[in-house]
Design a protein around this nucleic acid. Structure first.
Lengths: 210, 210, 210, 210
DNA sequence: AATGAATGAGAATTCATTCAT
DNA sequence: GATGAATGAATTCTCATTCAT
């Protein structure tokens, strides 16, 4: 435990500062000071300033993608899964607000670039989301709970953009709506937009779990 | 003309470089070299590196906001105006792709911060969008062409986030769909989501101009 | 003149310090202080610490190789040219003692490495010496003024090593003999070793210019 | 044995790395990693990074000087002893190539400096070579097997420089000639240069051992 | 003897900005 | 208006060494 103490302090300090001022405006000297360690200790544990960012990124992104994956694997109907997905997204966002803010601020700046290597590997984590959304839409089209007016893949890309944009604006304070209500609003919005039958406009068919 | 020539060369070089590498990764020395002027000349014309960014920002943002304003002022029905708004957004985006990329990359990094002063002034330019969207939604609710399930202001904030996110992902290559089709998809998506009557689900009422 | 002043001061300070303490033990901060300029000025003029070294290297090496080349191009008999070569070497050394010391200390550390690029380009400057020596030996073998017991190329490599080693030890104070006498000693030594006829051992045939 | 094992592993790793990348470019962390020990262990055994270098230096230099000393003590004629000396030098070099490379790269950087203390003590080890060569030359002048055209001490210094330079260029790949042939070439070269009688130019007097 | 986390004093380099010409 | 040499504060990163366990 003692050996992990400083490492954790560094991550905590870096998370706070990155979220507050942005990656580029946070000197390593300040991270060290806030964490109460020597500057060298940062490099002992993370190798570079980028290494700190990527550790935060990985921990947050891995949990997020894993949660989304398991949710899709449950095999519930398309519309329900989509609703669950959006719910999960904003729930996870609420529980990892600081880290999300960091990633939203500095991704893809920190992650873009080379076509291969660790950066590309990390980009793929999020591109997994498009695949998952695409799968959900396909499922919904097949089981009749969703109606697609455009190819599933394209719609999935659009949905990912929608989630990204509303999330970012929420985290940056451009959207004032409280998180739970925002989640509901977007769930409703997407539900309406992809609703399969005129009759069910505005109503949810069957009893969704959530 | 000679004096304006260099100014224009600087803006052109800076636009290209900011879009390509980001504001933070573009040294003023490189802007000067690419523009074929001395570094000091940058400061004669723009006062600071930030001044260059803000000039680009202002020119793009002002045109955008002005276009949106005039569009709303036309006074057409809510649903039509919303459709026009989205169409205008992606149209303008296509015509100012480089500048949008710059703003997407470095806003709000460059613009955030102080509660007052020039930064706050610039933030307000975009917050005007929320007001315009809100006005459109109110009008649509009043004239019966849109159906709101949540307060207009909140929905407007959400819509602005949706436009932001899809735009950003398109500009960064995360969305592959061609720009005109993306515009159509989002128009459809929002149209469905805010459609006033069950019967018209999936159909567009009346003949929109676009 | 005024614009070159600081550049020259930097080269002078760097030369002195590199010779005195070695490249690796000379911080750029000290070069700047000794030259009476800001540290940034070093980078304005030379781009990097290595750039300073390479500037010194190039100026010295180019003059040296050019002098050697022109000497060989005079077309005098092999033995005379070899004598001239050695004489020129130690003469040039005496006139550029500081720079030679630097190169001797930190070449090939600074210059070795990549197979191509600027480093390889610089290594080739000195490898030209082997070619020149080889040419001299061939000429001497052809005109009968030198007697080779081994291939000219191999002997040339050896001679270059001999010059290098004695030069280095002289510059580092391991050899105490004054420079002009050292030059004579080595001229005699090589002359004897490559002397073509038993009768002339210890005597020089004809009247060499030098 | 277990305690000696790690010590040996450290020396082996350090030798390889120093030879490959140079002392200054080899972090202690890498030595530890390559040796499979903790970084602290280096300091238990050698006290400092310099201590590792000096241990390698001492072991190599001591063996070399001892070999040279015993060779001179055999009391053979001057010319034969000189021939033996050169032969021994390149033989020893071949058997300790890695260590020689290290010393060639980083001596006198590591060893120069103070006039007294351990550094000076180590420098003296090699200055012993000059004395030995001087003794050989004196002996050859006395027994008529060598002919000196300059003071023995000065010639000895020159010879040491010759051996150093050819050795260094061989180790750095500047000389391509295989080691045994290089030894023969230098033996011949020096033999000719110091040959006592005109008649024997080009021939070796008597039967040298080697 | 062995470990390896922690240190902190440097080191090279970057770059927006200034100002004398 | 235009120049570009000069600046120096700030920043990331290196690494030999220490010390509690």
């Amino acid at each position: 435990m003692g050996e992990t103490q400083k490492r954790a302090a560094i991550l905590a300090a870096a998370s706070r500062l990155f979220a507050e001022k942005g990656y580029g405006n946070t000197p390593t000297s300040e991270i060290a000071r806030e964490a109460g360690v020597a500057e060298g200790t940062l490099y002992h544990h993370f190798g570079s300033k980028d290494g700190i960012f990527l550790t935060i990124f990985d921990e947050t992104a891995d949990g997020y993608v894993a949660g989304a994956e398991s949710l899709v694997r449950e095999g519930r109907p398309g519309a329900d899964t989509l609703r669950d997905f959006i719910g999960f997204h904003f729930d996870y966002l609420g529980r990892h607000a600081t880290q999300f803010l960091i990633i939203l601020r500095d991704f893809p700046e920190r992650i873009s670039g080379e076509k291969t290597g660790p950066a590309a590997f990390r980009r793929k984590k999020f591109s997994r989301l498009t695949s998952l959304l695409s799968e959900i839409l396909d499922r919904g089209a097949a089981d009749g709970t969703l109606r697609l007016r455009h190819p599933a893949r394209d719609t999935a890309e659009m949905l990912r953009g929608i989630l990204y944009g509303t999330t970012r604006h929420k985290m940056l304070g451009i959207i004032d709506v409280p998180l739970p209500r925002l989640a509901t609003m977007i769930t409703d919005f997407c539900g309406q937009a992809l609703s399969p039958t005129p009759e069910t406009c505005g109503k949810r068919p069957g009893g969704g779990r959530r």
